[in-house]
């Protein structure tokens, strides 16, 4: 409470959560940004992050509404609460951005990522890789006598865990899509 009898940090109705009590601890947030799918729109979003020194951990983009030409960009970023608020506000300023959602705040949300991994090896390691893939519900999408290519979907942590297990078993190459995310419930 201040001298003016105004309770600090009481705003609940603002779209941009304008009256937070900021902490200095860096947080990981997943943002879903709905944009007009026009040339250069991704450059606008990426340029904003580069130009203002924000962090991009992962970014995925694809058109999700073919008639309305809207794309959904899912960005995983890290920053203090004040920086996260600023990122959302700055994204909201871009003329072709329609909506900005902070799934970490609005959550709970489901986050999924797809990865493809090539495991090269023979003998026991090859058998072990296949067994682990089964446990992780990864699919074999290509196979030679010396290699497998697995396809795995899941939360980023699950993919990290699978990649860690595959490393000693001959993990040769990995491609990841970055996170796609949606709010749970209706």
């Amino acid at each position: 409470m201040s001298a003016l009898h105004i309770k600090k940090g009481t705003s609940k109705h603002s779209a941009y959560n304008l009256r937070p009590t900021f902490s200095d601890v860096s947080e990981r947030h997943t943002l879903a940004v709905l944009v007009e799918n026009e040339p250069g729109v991704l450059a606008r979003v990426i340029g904003l992050f580069a130009g203002r020194g924000y962090n991009i951990e992962s970014l995925t983009v694809a058109e999700v509404d073919h008639t309305g030409h809207l794309s959904r960009i899912t960005i995983v970023t890290k920053g203090t609460p004040q920086v996260i608020e600023q990122i959302k506000a700055q994204l909201g300023r871009i003329v072709v951005v329609h909506e900005v959602h902070d799934l970490t705040v609005e959550g709970p949300s489901v986050e999924r990522e797809l990865a493809i991994m090539k495991i090269v090896g023979q003998g026991d390691k090859r058998v072990e890789a296949l067994r682990l893939a089964d446990i992780f519900r990864a699919n074999v999408v290509d196979s030679t006598l010396n290699s497998f290519v697995f396809e795995i979907t899941g939360a980023p942590e699950k993919i990290d865990a699978f990649a860690d297990l595959m490393r000693p078993l001959g993990l040769a190459e990995i491609a990841r899509t970055g996170v796609a995310a949606l709010l749970r419930g209706d």
Partner: peptide, 17 residues
């Protein structure tokens, strides 16, 4: 009028967009 101006530098106690 620009929400990104608010709390950018100085925390606002009464923010009005």
């Amino acid at each position: 009028i620009d929400p990104s101006s608010i709390n950018k530098v100085i925390k606002a106690d009464i923010p009005i967009v």
